[in-house]
């Protein structure tokens, strides 16, 4: 996984609460192979009408449209709640996002994000409103520093929260499976004790 350190990009506002994973990627696209990328499915039903024609949406103007590329999404509370589908993160990542800023995230979404190198930056409701006000519905330059846990946009500098383990994982681009396989002796010792203690579990 590519390490995440500092990021300077355009931020894209999505001033909505409860943008659940069903909206991030509607279920009908999840049978597709990832080989061709999931970027086109991101927020599909918000971006396209029933006939598949593009709607007026900021997402249709960035990252292949003509108003530049945005790697940072700013949204309101409970972003990525709902279904555990990691495909929601694939859609964000394949579309080009590397960071989502919000006052709260669905638990499962946030850990899926980290496992794919996408930073879920947790900010206060107030700071988030301030950020969205500064963006005023348009793209705006943003600087993110993961080590310092700060976000700078125009004159505003705010700090964000991130779980300490996730921060390390993102900074180093670590992969959990490798880390865990290194703990094999501890796991084996645990399992032996565990089986003695709970013999009916086989």
């Amino acid at each position: 996984m590519k390490p995440f350190n500092q990021l300077t990009s355009l931020a894209c506002p999505l001033p909505l609460e409860n943008v659940d994973t069903d909206q991030l990627i509607p279920a009908r696209f999840m049978k597709e192979s990832r080989a061709d990328g999931y970027g086109n499915f991101l927020l599909h039903d918000m971006r396209f009408n029933a006939g598949g024609e593009p709607q007026k949406s900021i997402f249709n103007t960035i990252n292949n449209g003509n108003s530049g590329s945005s790697e940072v999404l700013v949204a309101l509370r409970n972003f990525g709640g709902g279904s555990s589908r990691e495909a929601a993160v694939y859609a964000l990542v394949d579309f080009g996002f590397r960071c989502v800023i919000a006052p709260s995230f669905g638990d499962i979404f946030a850990s899926n994000a980290v496992n794919n190198g996408l930073l879920p930056a947790l900010v206060s409701e107030q700071d988030c409103e301030q950020l969205l006000e500064a963006l005023a519905g348009e793209l705006g330059q943003i600087d993110i520093d993961l080590a310092a846990q700060t976000i700078t946009c125009e004159e505003i500098t705010i700090s964000f929260d991130i779980n300490a383990t996730w921060k390390l994982k993102l900074l180093n681009g670590w992969d959990d499976i490798d880390l865990t396989l290194a703990e094999a002796p501890k796991i084996a010792t645990f399992r032996e004790k565990y089986q003695k203690h709970y013999p009916w579990l086989g």
């Binding site: 555990s84 990691e86 496992n115 865990t180 396989l181």
Partner: peptide, 11 residues
């Protein structure tokens, strides 16, 4: 999520 499922399968 899927990455975690892979982790459980592997470990």
């Amino acid at each position: 999520g899927a990455s975690e499922v892979a982790h459980v399968l592997a470990t």
